[in-house]
C-alpha cells in the first residue's frame, strides 16, 4: 500500500484520504460502519478553549446537492477533549488531527498549548474559517493581516505539523494562503464552507436560527476545485483539498488540481463508509493508469 503514502510536513499518511472536521465526530461515531484504520487521518470536531453550546435549533437546511449548517462549534472544550475523549481515541491506527478554533488569538494559543503535549496528536488544523460563530472564526481567515497574526502566534507554541484551514469567503484565497505560508504554516487545507442562506418562502422566515450558515456538499465542488488549483499555483507548502468530495473520482480531481491529500466531509452523512470506498477507488485508478504512486498525480493536470 506504499503507493498511496503521502507526506504533509512531518506527517506521513498511509493514504491521502482523511475525514473533515465537523463531519466525522471523533471517529467513534463511524466505527460501526467502517474500519477507521483504513483512513489516512481523522480530523476531529472543531475544538475551542472553553466549552461551547453552539447555536440554537434549527441548525441545518437542505439545499440542492448540499446543505447549510450553523452548528457553531458545539464542543465540550479542549480540556474535556484531553481528559475524556483523547484516551478513547488515541489507540486508533490512523492519525488524529484536532481542528482548533477560537474567538481571540489567546483562545487559539490556549487551545493549542493544551494539545501540543499529546503524543498521538501529530498535527493540528487551525480553523480560521468557521462562518458560524459571532466572534473570531472566519474573521481571522478573511484578511491576510489577521490570518498571518493568528498563524504567527500559534506557530510560536506549536512545533508539530501546523495545518491552516482556509475560508473560501474571500476575494483571493491564494493571497491568504501565501500569508499563512509566510508565517510558517506547514500545510493549508481548503475549503471550509461557503457562507450561504436559505429562506422558507411560505413562512417568509430564514431556515436557520442564525439566518446565515455554511454551505457544503457536492454543490460547492467546482468552486473548491478552482480554489485548490489557484492556491497550488501560488504556494510551495502541501494542500489538503476538500469541498463536496463524494467519490474516488472527485478525490482524484482534487489531487490533480494540486492536493497532496483530501478530506471527505458532508458526504460522510449520506454514505458513512464513503471514505474507505474512496481509498479503494484511488488504488484502482492507479492500477488502471499504471501509476506507481499517488504522489505522481499531485498537481499533474494536463493543460
Amino acid at each position: 500500500m506504499d503507493r498511496l503514502k503521502v507526506k504533509i510536513g512531518d506527517l506521513e499518511l498511509k493514504n491521502p484520504v482523511m475525514t473533515a472536521s465537523g463531519t466525522f465526530g471523533y471517529g467513534t461515531e463511524y466505527s460501526d460502519f467502517m474500519d477507521l484504520s483504513r483512513l489516512g487521518g481523522i480530523f476531529v470536531k472543531g475544538t475551542t478553549l472553553e466549552p461551547r453550546q453552539g447555536n440554537d435549533y434549527p441548525r441545518m437546511a437542505e439545499t440542492p446537492s448540499g446543505m447549510l449548517n450553523s452548528v457553531g462549534l458545539q464542543n465540550k472544550g479542549v480540556h474535556y477533549f484531553v481528559s475524556d475523549i483523547y484516551p478513547k481515541i488515541k489507540e486508533y491506527d490512523t492519525h488524529i488531527i484536532v481542528n482548533v478554533s477560537g474567538s481571540t488569538i489567546e483562545d487559539y494559543i490556549g487551545c493549542t498549548e493544551a494539545l501540543v503535549g499529546l503524543d498521538k496528536i501529530p498535527a493540528i488544523e487551525l480553523n480560521i474559517s468557521c462562518p458560524n460563530v459571532k466572534e473570531g472564526g472566519m474573521a481571522f481567515g478573511t484578511s491576510c493581516v489577521s490570518a498571518a497574526q493568528v498563524v504567527k502566534a500559534v506557530r510560536k507554541v506549536y512545533d508539530k505539523t501546523l495545518i491552516v484551514k482556509l475560508s473560501p469567503n474571500v476575494t483571493d484565497i491564494a493571497e491568504i494562503a501565501l500569508a499563512v505560508e509566510a508565517e510558517g504554516a506547514d500545510c493549508v487545507s481548503l475549503v471550509n464552507t461557503f457562507l450561504g442562506m436559505a429562506i422558507d418562502a411560505e413562512k417568509r422566515k430564514p431556515k436557520l436560527s442564525t439566518i446565515t450558515g455554511g454551505l457544503s456538499g457536492p454543490c460547492i465542488k467546482p468552486i473548491a476545485l478552482r480554489m485548490v488549483w489557484q492556491v497550488y499555483n501560488a504556494v510551495k507548502i502541501p494542500i489538503i483539498g476538500m469541498g463536496g468530495i463524494s467519490n474516488w473520482k472527485d478525490a482524484i480531481e482534487f489531487i490533480l488540481a494540486g492536493s497532496h491529500a483530501i478530506q471527505v466531509g458532508t458526504y460522510n452523512f449520506i454514505n458513512p463508509s464513503v471514505s474507505v470506498e474512496i481509498v479503494d477507488g484511488i488504488l484502482n485508478y492507479l492500477d488502471r493508469h499504471n501509476i506507481d504512486s499517488i504522489s505522481d498525480l499531485i498537481g499533474k493536470l494536463d493543460y
Partner: peptide, 23 residues
C-alpha cells in the same frame, strides 16, 4: 423528529436543548 442529516451523532444538527444538559 428534529431534522437529522446523519442520524448517528456526527453532524450535531438535530440538537434539543435538554434541562441541565444543554444541547
Amino acid at each position: 423528529e428534529n431534522h437529522m442529516p446523519c442520524g448517528f451523532g456526527a453532524c450535531l444538527c438535530c440538537i434539543e436543548n435538554i434541562k441541565e444538559r444543554g444541547n
